[in-house]
Nucleic acid binder design. Sequence first.
RNA 1: GGAGAGAUGGCUGAGUGGCCGAAAGCGAUCGCCUGCUAAGCGAUUGUACGCCCCAAAAGGUGUACCGGGGGUUCGAAUCCCCCUCUCUCCGCCA
Length: 425
Amino acid sequence: MLEIKFIRENIDLVRTKLEERGDAIDLGRFVAMDRKRRDILQEVETLRSERNSVSKEIGARKKNGQDASDIIARMGTVSTRIKELDDALKETEAQLGELTMTIPNIPHESVVRGTGDDDNPVVREWGEKPRFDFDPKAHWDIGEDLNILDFAAGAKITGARFTLYRGAGALLERALVNFMLDLHTTRHGYTEVFTPFMVNSDSMTGTGQLPKFEEDLFKVAGTDYYLIPTAEVPVTNIHRDDILDEKDLPLSYVAYSACFRAEAGSYGKDTRGLIRQHQFNKVEMVKFTKPEESYDQLEKLTANAEEILEKLGIHFRTVSLCTGDLGFSSAKTYDLEAWMPGQDAYREISSCSNFEAFQARRAGIRFRRGESGKIEYVHTLNGSGLAVGRTVVAVLENYQQKDGSVLIPEALKPYMNGIDRIARK
RNA sequence: GGAGAGAUGGCUGAGUGGCCGAAAGCGAUCGCCUGCUAAGCGAUUGUACGCCCCAAAAGGUGUACCGGGGGUUCGAAUCCCCCUCUCUCCGCCA
């Protein structure tokens, strides 16, 4: 959410920036609603002020045994009018709020203009594509041949886009989770948290999933609860409506969670394999920072995610999303794309974003400056560190051998109970 | 699932219709005092929104907020209704 005052005072800038994102928002309607709200507010507050002072006089008169019936009658009509205006105000504020909630964030000045992922500049590459003296297989074939991924069982138990991991496959998933968490907590200074996997609608609104993206979520029938699409939601909402101490910033959290996404609108896309699942595991990093240091922290957070891939020895590139490819809440995003030989493609494995104060405003997350005592919104950031299922894909496809087995990356061996190669039994 | 108790400012805790944005204490900040520390004295100590002023900040002013929502009343922290959460006991349960 952008600050209403900011939109009001920078209407042309906002319009231009939203056009760069490819978003058509009716800012004329915003201006009209905002004007209407303030007009009503002024009138109702004037009446309330009158009522307050007259009510005091009524009290004073009654105390002295004087008659007050004349002004009581007059205030009766004033109160009726206040009630009418209150209703109108509530209606207007609800509409204005709804409109404001659907306006996306403004891209940072360093974000290049573009319309889609073809325009995303590559800012870094690490490693190189592995060479195979055979035709590398896709992970779904590797996984099924090794009997560690069972897509049919997942489909039977639940449905499409659910997968059963078995034996060394299940262990690999768990090993990656622990490897990532350990690196971020012991080397990168993150505090591990473990959160609920369902959250209420206030939390979803705070991070921007609601009200605009409800169709992407799974809702628990008969409740106000939703399955989280990412740990970003519960972790960011840890501090909803908090006023933090400046000396505690930046706060850095890391959380493992299962993630649930409805994937509405992606029918027919990535239907095979682990790439696009309704349920997947992710290790997520979240930071709360002072405004002036959030972009430094974005670089650090991105580097923290990159280090996982480096330690695993997986070739990747880092792209900076252009204005047209940026997510709703984000001011700037780096995507890490891991090389997947079985698919002959780079695939997104992490997304690291600075939301600036966009989420903090929605969620009421602020901090007090030590010097001035002033209260300001924090900046929130998050990034996958990493998407675990896709990391399994990357390991299987990059470390596959001619005989169909898969070597375990050196960094992962301490987590694999002595297994250094997954082979067909 | 059943029965009961509770939710007030950074914290503790008073407050059953007007004098309450809210006593008192604690904490915090600033100042004074004191060889240092401790103690003591004084002042300050919420947030949001609107309007005025303004380049901006500061300032002035109004309104709202005592878990959330609705109602009664000229007037609600206080009375009534609904909801949420917390705690205690019983039942059930991984």
